[in-house]
Amino acid sequence: MFAAATSGLIMGGTLIIAVGAQNSFLIEQSLKRQWTALFVLLFIISDAISISLGAMGFGVLLQEYPTLISITKWAGVAFLLWIAYNKIKSSMADDALVLATAHKVLPFKKALLIALAVTWLNPHFYLDTLLLMGNLASQWQQDKWWFVAGAISASVIWFVGVSTLTAKFAHHMQRPRFWRWFNRANAAVLGLVSVQLASL
Rank of each mutant, 00 (worst) to 15 (best):
Phe125Ile: 03
Ala115Ser: 03
Arg177Gly: 15
Thr129Lys: 10
Gly161Val: 08
Gly161Lys: 13
Gln174Leu: 14
Ala102Gly: 02
Ser153Pro: 01
His171Gly: 12
Gly161Pro: 13
Ala100Tyr: 12
Leu136Pro: 02
Val118Asn: 00
His103Asn: 14
Leu130His: 04
Ala137Ile: 05
Trp140Gln: 02
Met173Leu: 15
Thr166Ser: 05
Gly134Trp: 04
Lys144Met: 15
Ala151Trp: 01
Trp120Met: 01
Gln174Trp: 15
Arg175Pro: 12
Ala170Cys: 10
Ala137Gly: 04
Asp128Thr: 06
Ala149Ile: 00
Ala170Val: 09
Phe108Met: 12
Asn135Cys: 08
Asp128Asn: 07
Leu136His: 03
Gln141Arg: 11
Val118Phe: 01
Ser163Leu: 05
Thr166Tyr: 09
Leu127Phe: 10
Gly134Pro: 05
Ile157Thr: 08
Ala115Pro: 01
Phe169Thr: 09
Ala170Leu: 12
Val118Cys: 00
Thr129Tyr: 11
Ala151Ser: 05
Ser138Cys: 12
Val148Ser: 09
Arg175Trp: 15
Leu136Gly: 03
His172Asp: 15
Phe125Gln: 00
Tyr126Glu: 00
Leu165Glu: 02
Arg175Ser: 14
Leu106Ser: 12
His124Trp: 07
Met173Cys: 14
Lys104Leu: 15
Phe125Asp: 03
His124Tyr: 03
Asn122Phe: 02
Leu121Tyr: 10
Ala149Gly: 05
Val160Asn: 10
Ala154Phe: 00
Trp146Thr: 09
Val118Asp: 05
Leu136Asp: 01
Asp143Ile: 08
Thr164Ala: 13
Ala102Thr: 05
Asn122Asp: 06
Trp179Leu: 02
Leu116Met: 00
Ile157Trp: 03
Phe125Ala: 00
Asp128Met: 08
Thr166His: 04
Ser155Phe: 01
His103Thr: 15
Trp179Pro: 03
Val148Glu: 06
Ile152Ser: 00
Pro107Ser: 02
Phe159Gly: 01
Met133Asp: 01
Thr119Ser: 09
Ala100Leu: 10
Ala115Trp: 00
Ala151Cys: 08
Ala117Met: 01
Phe178His: 08
Asn135His: 12
Pro107Phe: 09
His103Pro: 11
Phe125Val: 05
Pro176Ser: 08
Phe159Ala: 02
Trp145Gln: 07
Ala102Trp: 00
Phe147Gln: 03
Leu127Thr: 05
Tyr126Thr: 00
Asn122Thr: 01
Ala111His: 08
Ala170Ile: 07
Val162Tyr: 09
Ala115Glu: 02
Leu116Ile: 02
Val156Tyr: 08
Ala117Arg: 05
Gly150Met: 06
Tyr126Leu: 02
Ala115Met: 09
Phe159Cys: 01
Leu112Asn: 09
His172Gln: 15
Lys144Trp: 13
Leu121Ile: 02
Ser155Pro: 03
Lys109Glu: 15
Leu165Val: 11
Phe178Val: 07
Thr164Lys: 14
Asp143Arg: 09
Trp146Lys: 07
Val105Met: 13
Phe125Leu: 05
